[in-house]
Design a protein around this nucleic acid. Structure first.
Lengths: 192, 192
DNA sequence: CTCACAGTGTTAGTAACTCACACCATACAC
DNA sequence: GTGTATGGTGTGAGTTACTAACACTGTGAG
């Protein structure tokens, strides 16, 4: 049981905290898994029992199920992009108010570390899957068009986060996300 | 000079061929870099001089500059998605006729190998950059909206390839790409 | 108390990658 | 020819992410 309560979850959190503390202080590459584990008072094997790879400490997040539910909860006759957009703009501000700094530092760490940036596509794919599922009635397979749209929405979201980090966090992420979805919706007809 | 002629390019190609032969026969994970190198008659160090990682033998491609040029060559007052779409639907059929099988086997290998799938986002990012550049006048920085659109087009393209492989290559990739761009363009207003 | 079991530690691997440095082949000067 | 750059390659030793096998411990149920 690798669940979310009990001793397991506590060392898991300790490992994550130890990892971020070290990564932010010294950079991802300079920190070995052994030191992360030592910082959490466990051995390197325990690290790998909780996170399949070093990259996963940073990349894994838990937002997907929430996003899927939020998308599903919008009326099915609304345009799919709007369903996704509404889900995101509903969920984001709450998270954003609570953990803006942590969110920014994490995004910056990912985008500035080649090894992490390289594996970002995987997180994106998993968000995309959540959108696909939210847009599809339970039991059915997502239609090809739905998969394209889900992937495009994910691309918009990822681009917004990238712009946020390039801007060094001065702009407000929810605004950038709004702009990104606007750009996506206007893509077909609008001028360059 | 790691260019495209001379002894360097020859061993580079030999390494790529050796790698694909072994990967397709035994699977990506079972094959070590040392064996790839041996198959090309060189040492493992030579492998890493030509490809920074094992994954790069499969993931690196050379289409980006061509795509950028094709996008740029379309009139700048056309909608950006159409410029990208035209570039892709122009370039793809030629490549497709010549190397359909190689293309399919490569795509399948990537999508079915976790380590390669995980790093697909990196290739996607590089195609996206090519689109951004093609959509932006030289010397200028790509506008945020352009970056969203480029990323969305890349997502459409990637989704089409994924569907092609899931379909086991029965459908024609150019058709799937057309459908994916249709879905993208109709995303804003169309029904679910 | 005992038993079950999840969580952890130890040890010993494999394989991807890096570094330092020496070697060789082609090419061009003289 | 002989020298001499230079790009490509080999050797060998090292670091680190990750895996496998197996033994240990603490906690909770009966």
């Amino acid at each position: 049981m690798d669940g979310r309560s009990g001793r397991g979850a506590r060392t898991r959190d300790a490992l994550r905290r130890s990892a971020f503390r070290l990564f932010l202080a010294e950079g991802y590459e300079k920190v070995t898994v052994a030191r992360i584990a030592a910082g959490a008072g466990v051995s390197h094997m325990t690290f790998f029992r909780h996170f399949p790879t070093k990259e996963d400490v940073v990349l894994r997040d838990e937002y997907d199920p929430m996003l899927e539910e939020l998308v599903r909860s919008r009326p099915a006759d609304h345009p799919p992009v709007e369903r996704v957009r509404h889900a995101v703009t509903t969920a984001l501000p709450a998270v954003y108010r609570e953990e803006r700094d942590a969110l920014y530092l994490r995004a910056r760490l990912i985008l500035r570390t080649p090894a992490l940036r390289a594996r970002m596509g995987e997180s994106a794919a998993s968000s995309s899957l959540a959108f696909e599922r939210g847009l599809t009635p339970p039991g059915e397979d997502p239609a090809p068009a739905v998969r394209v749209i889900a992937a495009a929405c994910t691309a918009a979201l990822t681009t917004a986060i990238t712009l946020w980090v390039e801007d060094e966090g001065r702009a407000e992420l929810p605004d950038l996300v709004e702009d990104a979805f606007d750009a996506l919706v206007n893509a077909a007809g609008g001028p360059s």
